[in-house]
Design a protein around this nucleic acid. Structure first.
Lengths: 226, 226
DNA sequence: CGCCGTATGCTTACGTTGTACGCCGAGTAT
DNA sequence: ATACTCGGCGTACAACGTAAGCATACGGCG
């Protein structure tokens, strides 16, 4: 009887596979955050014991790497517009969209500090370097600009998700009043006059501002050479 | 006898305090990385049992918050030079110095996504906003530029420590050849021509490049208004 | 048809983590 | 002297990653 039930269950179960494991892990992480991902929990999610996952994944680090790559593979290279600046804007926005769609992706990249060499990451890199080459930069300058844009996008989204005071959740609201108190207590005139703008700032608009700064800087550099 | 020894030991032991706990935690984290910081390990470092730490720290999260604040308090506000652009450069470099001196600080900020409202962080913020105001920006623009610079610095150092291919450790070297192989395998002409510059890039120089882009963009914005 | 090697999932177990709880010894106030 | 408080200790528990061994199901062979 018990045997029969077990047979049925195992017949019913669609077999595990690396892809299924990694997909479920990404979904779990997207849904409930990085710390929700434990081997036991992921096993439960798949109706399977924790140790069974190890048939498809070397260890947790391997799993996290695969999850990172899967998330990165969701990057959709935007269509070129003919104008390099517009293309840069589109690519940067697509990166931000990706990071916001997978809020743990930034932490994944930050914690496992493994250089990006997966195929999923190389496509977008090629795309970015192509835009910068079309902007008239030398390969060397293109690499420098790549790091500048990359750093900006990366760091901005990270601040946006953590430190920045955008959004309206109650925890932010509490941070607002605490910060306002601290600013009043100390003598910080610039901060005081900036407080309104610090609080009601819109992430999208802020992001574009810095992006335009970088593009304008690049344009100036190109103009100076010509 | 055992009692006597214990008395001597307890007499000899300098009493624990929140400050001593937090300082030791920061030293440990700086020396051996974030994952080396466990309550037991930190206790051992202080010659004390793990549970004793809880007399001075609510829980580990509280400890991490205090460590973050202590690290942030090591920011040394640079002297003003009279030129806002130069002041911006100096401030940005000081931030980078701080992050490199405390390599786990970025992860601390990223993982506990609590808005910066500690006194240790407000001083540098005031300083940055003051520079941007002296550059002729409105408070609103100053906030936008603050987020742009902040994001860039943050993200750049993060990439530098993790993803970027700077440095010469053997793990990077292996990443180099793996990446070169991947680039050869796929058809990625821009990446291929960029590979040399990607590998031998100098962090300091890269950082300044992006910084100058932002400053130039800001200058252009100011010029356009005048 | 049965048999068997191999892959795949399950069970148990170990060491490490954060931390709740109870104890004790020392210093202080009464 | 006595009682109270407080800081450090020891034990204990749940959750974690994962090593080792066992059991079961499936595909190729007679």
């Amino acid at each position: 009887m018990a045997g029969t039930r077990r047979v049925q269950a195992s017949k019913r179960r669609t077999p595990l596979s690396r892809e299924r494991v990694v997909r479920a892990a990404l979904e779990l992480v997207d849904r409930e955050g990085l710390e929700a991902l434990s081997m036991r929990r992921l096993g439960a999610e798949l109706g399977v014991e924790a140790m069974s996952l190890y048939n498809h994944v070397r260890d947790k680090d391997d799993l996290l790497g695969a999850v990172t790559e899967l998330a990165l593979s969701r990057f959709r290279v935007p269509e070129p517009s003919g104008d390099w600046a517009e293309d840069a804007r589109r690519a940067a926005r697509e990166w931000r969209r990706l990071f916001l769609e997978h809020p743990s992706l930034i932490r994944l990249l930050a914690e496992r500090n493994e250089p990006l060499r997966s195929p999923a990451a190389l496509g977008p890199m090629e795309h970015a370097l192509d835009i910068l080459a079309r902007a008239g930069l030398t390969p060397r300058e293109a690499v420098q600009a790549f790091h500048a844009f990359g750093g900006y996008i990366f760091g901005f989204v990270m601040m946006e998700q953590g430190i920045m005071l955008t959004g309206d959740d109650p925890v932010r609201r509490r941070a607002h009043v605490e910060m306002a108190e601290a600013v009043e207590a100390a003598h910080l005139p610039r901060l005081r006059e900036a407080m309104p703008d610090l609080m009601e700032c819109d992430g999208d608009e802020q992001f574009v501002f810095g992006l335009e700064l970088l593009i304008e800087g690049l344009r100036a550099k190109a103009a100076a050479r010509a």
